[in-house]
Write a protein that binds this DNA or RNA. Structure first.
Lengths: 137, 137
DNA sequence: TCGAATAACTTGAATGTCAAGATATTTGAA
DNA sequence: TTCAAATATCTTGACATTCAAGTTATTCGA
């Protein structure tokens, strides 16, 4: 297999996902960055600002502003940390949960759609390949 | 294969690529958006503003500003269109070519790195799977 | 106990983005 | 041919994202 060709195809696939995701996010009235925050809080559950900033790959200053806006939209909230009064836990509101689940389902539908022509065996192979590639990050 | 699990893994893989790409781009002194423009011009060759805007998924107003900045960095230039005086062709400068090739090689290296544990057969299967998934966009 | 480290917030500057409108040019129909 | 409509790009104003640098409050550790 030619590495050039494979590299090009991986990038192409990545670009397609990005375009799809941008479209889905825009329809939900959120920005990409806001959606990303909701995704992580949805998957991780209550999480500290510091840890969330690291996962998003932004500074805490950036995150403060970002959480301000999401809190204003009533999608998540700051809850004072029980044992550290400098800190907050960020968690989804009910409205935030709904948005998260909606987005989660969109992804699930896309996966099912993409898998229509895959045999059970092919799906398993793809799954293992993705896992194997991720070992290199 | 559980669609939930597969969906989760695809997203995970996508996130890893994003983080990797962000790091590479940041090291090059460009923004993600600027890099994206260079990628497309590098792959497509001389291209009209209108077409480039469509491929980037932004308005022409956004692109004008973006190209202004890249022109100031001497990475690409506007060349008047031969038969349509309203229009320009955007092309890479030599410096832009270098940046493009560098980035291209980074991707190639990543692909080779990810493929280290893949047999020839596995690589071909992955390639076909990616192609097949992309038919659904 | 107290200085260093840590968590989050604030501010200022740069960039990205869109919508709406402006300008120049091309196109197509009368 | 002529001219209104379409097209290509640019401009402007408003807002979001982001970082760096600096601030405040609290916790930690020697």
């Amino acid at each position: 297999m030619d590495a050039e060709e494979l590299s090009k195809t991986i990038i192409e696939f990545y670009e397609k996902l990005t375009t799809w995701e941008d479209g889905v996010v825009k329809d939900s009235g959120l920005t990409t960055s806001q959606n990303h925050a909701i995704e992580i809080v949805g998957h991780e559950g209550a999480i500290k600002m510091r840890k969330l900033a690291d996962k998003l790959g932004v500074t805490t200053g950036t995150l403060t502003v970002s959480i301000d806006r999401l809190e204003k939209k009533a999608l998540l909230r700051r809850v004072p940390h029980k044992s550290d009064r400098r800190s907050y836990l960020i968690e989804l509101t009910e409205k935030g949960q709904k948005v998260f689940k909606m987005h989660h389902n969109h992804h699930l539908n896309l996966t099912r759609e993409m898998m229509t022509d895959f045999s059970e065996q092919e799906q398993a192979t793809l799954y293992q390949s993705l896992k194997k590639m991720m070992e290199h990050f």
